[in-house]
Design a protein around this nucleic acid. Structure first.
Lengths: 245, 245
DNA sequence: CGCGAGCTTGATGCCGATCAATGCATGTGG
DNA sequence: CCACATGCATTGATCGGCATCAAGCTCGCG
């Protein structure tokens, strides 16, 4: 039996190839033609597993690569000198980690896996080289960076001008929207992060997050069972968020 | 008399050329060699004045160009659907505006001049083409985007975990640091924005900003005369900010 | 000079932080 | 298998920082 036939029977469980990745419509390859994708496949040849609780990189680490979340869930957080910590984002499949490191060639935040995860390693210097040749890839890379900036502005609006329940509502709607784009239910989700992590992201204490969840449950907007959330009244959740998130 | 001689006597007051711009060590040309700079000069051929109070672009406008602040001072702000507004940044000479528009090909925030200003217009599509050829330019462009992301993370930390006086201290130190990089005094500055705009940026009401200024003055940290600020005790200001900004 | 935008300062109230106790799920060793 | 520890979440009571409301003040400008 040929190796090709063998591969057909028992394919590599996680073949490292953007061209055959089911996330390619959400990730770096968006808009890149199939023949050009082969070039990207050569570049993104390495996978790296990250266990729950482990960090993919830490603030201060030398920057060499970007990472695309292949499976799992991450948080990124920055710390101030006196130890205060701020979660700056949560990343799910298809999203890119490490953009913060380009500017100074050192990472400026920690990226921590919130469940057992796997990332695709994208060596940055080679990516820059390839984007010089593949204009579609260049365009998509620039869009990813720009959207990160726009996302951050949305969080600044949230932190600067919304009240606790509005923040939580905006957070939940953002999560479900991203989950829906990945084919998951729009009304049922399992939180991968603790109340404390949600609070840090939203500029609230964990007790306040918990109270807001309880309030939403009392009002019939959500059903909350620990980290299992069901959205009962999506319209009301929308109303609670006056913001453009 | 030749035109060259004429030009020597009465040069164009604002020649549009990165190669002869005194901001080139802060702006897009950082790290770009002199011969390559000529290519950039061809691209950045247009200046645009923006009067105080006018906007350079607004949320929803089609995105075509980036803008480098040549002279003056800007704020960028996003608005939520229900009218709440959040200042997302203040930009001074050498800083780049418009990065938010790349992702969706529409601007997502307003950029408003806080004093009579002038920007260099950088047509984005042509910039992308040029970065494919000039690796130093590409590198610098990516760094500028990345630093914007890192800056935003710093603001998120500030908004999420600092108290009023800490926020104002961090804001002032950030401003003076950027002014110093432009050759201005590290201890004396004139604010170009109102208390309300500072408050919006810092997630505070204008009264709180005003009180924090008064407190700093009472404590001998600052001298405050309307918008004329003198820093008397820079070390104490640093202490007030535990953060890594 | 008088107007108005922006700033300061005071009095009061509320939202979310803080402190504290309990509940609940998971895991571990006796 | 149960007892207990541990981590996370919920809920209540109290407190404090900042928002809000309100009144004057300053300065530039027509």
């Amino acid at each position: 039996m040929t190796t090709a036939a063998l591969a057909a029977i028992r394919p590599e469980p996680f073949k490292v190839a953007c061209s055959s990745c089911n996330l390619r419509e959400l990730c770096l390859p968006v808009g890149v033609s199939n023949e050009q994708l082969e070039r990207l496949d050569q570049l993104v040849s390495q996978r790296r597993p990250v266990n729950r609780g482990d960090s993919l990189f830490r603030a201060g680490d030398a920057f060499t690569s970007l990472y695309a979340v292949r499976a799992g869930f991450f948080k990124t957080c920055v710390a101030s000198e006196d130890g205060r910590e701020q979660v700056t984002g949560f990343q799910m499949a298809g999203e890119v980690l490490g953009l913060d490191g380009i500017g100074t060639e050192r990472h400026t935040c920690d990226a921590v896996a919130l469940e057992d995860s796997q990332v695709c390693v994208i060596p940055f210097q080679q990516l820059e080289e390839l984007t010089r040749e593949l204009t579609d890839l260049q365009r998509q890379f620039h869009k990813i960076m720009s959207r990160e900036i726009v996302r951050d502005h949305g969080v600044m609006l949230l932190l600067g001008s919304m009240r606790a329940e509005e923040r939580l509502a905006a957070f939940l709607l953002n999560l479900t929207q991203r989950l829906r784009a990945r084919g998951f239910s729009a009304s049922s989700l399992v939180l991968r992060m603790t109340r404390e992590e949600i609070g840090s992201y939203l500029g609230l204490k964990l007790e306040t997050v918990s109270r807001a969840f309880s309030k939403f449950q009392d009002d019939g907007v959500l059903e909350v069972k620990q980290r299992q959330i069901t959205i009962l009244d999506s319209a009301r959740l929308q109303e609670l968020v006056g913001a453009a998130c």
